[in-house]
Design a protein around this nucleic acid. Structure first.
Length: 315
DNA sequence: AAGGAGATCAACCGCAGTGGC
DNA sequence: GGCCACTGCGGTTGATCTCCT
């Protein structure tokens, strides 16, 4: 951590900027920013920093909000499912932490990045990865363990994805059906850019083969060859959970009627307000740029019902 | 109990992308 | 087209915590 009183020590800073605080945030600063955000919502970060009476740069405020103050942040250790999901998503997306975070409700890119770089990387190094879920009731089912890593099976991913579905009343969907034809991964022709790959798909073997063309994904660890991960059968990305603040504000009404998302939502009763009442839960600052081609929940569920492997229907 | 080593994680930095003028 | 401000992202840093000897 950095010392909170490290102020203006950077010689590159001009006089104006040298007034800006750096380092750890004090509780008072947190409260200022939180109150401002809840009252005024998101806007230009430099204005926010100024108007909230913070001696911080906008960038710092943004980071603090996204990584710490955001109402919908989950706290605590990563669950096994989250772990598996991170590993799987990383095998597909590489170090695109923000995109991985967008698919993990309540988690930030920073958090996931730290988790990966400390815990997971170390585990891979030591080859001591254990992914068998303790609540995996059908653990009698044999699993393919390759190099100490258990690849995700379809039902695992389906469970994860359905968890996300059932816990979120709305989320972004981009390029699910670009143009008039169902083309889940047009981005595969473009450096594996999975930005638009939202939703749950079964990818034809031929397509998966294109993805894997000869080498492993983002080869930090050779174990992530497509075949090893079972990606020929299963190249699934859970739905994006991204949504901008503004969009969530617009959705508060809906969420208040259908809000079973993220039970451990931040609830700032000490400060006399309930954050989730202002934002609804399930708001994710990550991927704020993902604003195009979004689907409403009803439409989304209708569309999902067209996927034969989803045996639930839109209500 | 002390202190050294390694792990964790909040925060910073620099760069790229984007939009407005 | 160039410049500038702003935003978002990934990599990195470093203070603090935890464990081990």
């Amino acid at each position: 951590m950095r010392k909170p009183d490290q102020i203006g020590k950077d010689p590159r800073m001009n006089n104006n900027k040298s007034k800006l605080r750096k380092g750890l945030w004090s509780p008072e600063e947190d409260e200022k920013l939180m109150r401002y955000m809840l009252t005024n919502g998101q806007g230009c970060w430099s204005d926010i920093a100024r108007n909230a009476g913070l001696q911080r740069c906008g960038k710092s405020c943004r980071l603090r909000w996204i990584n710490y103050l955001r109402p919908d942040l989950k706290r605590g250790a990563f669950s096994l499912q989250e772990e598996e999901l991170i590993i799987h998503l990383h095998s597909i997306l590489g170090n695109r932490w923000s995109q991985i975070a967008a698919r993990l409700p309540g988690r930030t890119d920073n958090e996931i990045k730290n988790f990966w770089n400390s815990t997971l990387k170390k585990r891979f190094k030591n080859n001591t990865f254990i992914t068998t879920s303790p609540n995996d009731s059908d653990s009698s089912e044999p699993r393919d363990v390759i190099g100490g890593v258990t690849p995700l099976h379809e039902h695992d991913l389906m469970n994860m994805c359905l968890d996300t579905f059932s816990s979120s009343s709305n989320y972004s969907m981009q390029n699910l059906v670009p143009g008039s034809h169902l083309d889940p991964f047009p981005m595969l022709d473009n450096c594996y850019d999975m930005t638009g790959a939202a939703g749950i798909f079964n990818v034809p073997t031929s397509l998966a083969a294109q993805v894997g063309k000869g080498d492993e994904f983002y080869g930090d660890y050779g174990i992530f060859e497509p075949n090893n991960m079972g990606l020929e059968r299963d190249l699934s990305l859970p739905p994006l959970e991204s949504r901008s603040i503004e969009e969530n504000n617009a959705m508060v009404d809906m969420k208040s009627n259908n809000n079973h998302f993220n039970n451990d939502c931040f609830n700032n009763t000490d400060q006399g307000f309930k954050v989730e009442n202002m934002f609804g839960c399930g708001n994710h600052g990550q991927g704020e740029n993902l604003k195009i081609g979004e689907w409403d929940f009803e439409g989304l569920m209708q569309d999902l019902s067209s996927f034969p492997f989803l045996d639930f229907q839109a209500e």
